[in-house]
Design a binder for these strands. Structure first.
Length: 168
DNA sequence: TTAGTGATATCC
DNA sequence: GATATCACTAAA
């Protein structure tokens, strides 16, 4: 079943680990569908999280994070790679779950390339978008919590948070 | 290990 | 206006 608004209208620390094991579904322009099981996510939570894009407050880029749960946040990293996040929680509290990897694509850049996801999805609603959504097929998996990666600019306390969730 | 790539944030 | 930075990947 397709995940609805209620799923994303929770704290990211509940939603992010819950996303692991779910199916990311992408319907292509020609009508074909790609289904990939999510194997790794990371939580970015609030202005007090020094690893979060919203750490400097609301900017043109981070404004998406302040929206309601279910909004897709896609941004370009290193000029090459699209990274896809899903905003969670209530409006005006910036938090999002970064989808880092799926079963056949081990890296956020590869993931978006495999699914042809780019900036066109930024700001759209994953519970209403006809080309991209997430399904729960009933599979339950073990979750392993780990430290987030690639955030050397964040404070030590934030780097040490176990906000990366992997399929066990 | 290093280069490539371009939007964003921050600094004149 | 400019430039430093960045949640990455592929090639070597």
């Amino acid at each position: 079943m397709k995940l609805n608004r209620k799923f994303f209208d929770r704290d990211v620390l509940e939603a992010a680990p819950d996303l692991v094991g779910k199916l990311l579904v992408r319907r292509m322009a020609d009508g074909s569908e790609i289904r990939l099981r999510i194997t790794e996510t990371e939580a970015y939570r609030g202005q007090s999280d020094t690893a979060c894009h919203a750490r400097f407050g609301r900017t043109k880029r981070s404004a998406i994070l302040y929206r309601q749960g279910g909004i897709i946040y896609v941004y370009l990293c290193y000029g090459i790679h699209w990274l896809v996040n899903i905003v969670t929680g209530p409006e005006d509290f910036p938090q999002a779950a970064l989808i880092r990897a799926c079963e056949t694509a081990d890296g956020p850049g590869k993931l978006t390339k495999a699914l042809s996801i780019d900036g066109q999805f930024n700001g759209s609603d994953i519970t209403e978008n006809p080309f991209l959504w997430i399904e729960d097929d009933g599979t339950r998996v073990d979750i392993i919590a780990d430290k987030r990666v690639g955030i050397g600019y964040a404070s030590i306390e934030d780097q040490n948070r176990l906000w990366r969730f992997k399929k066990g």
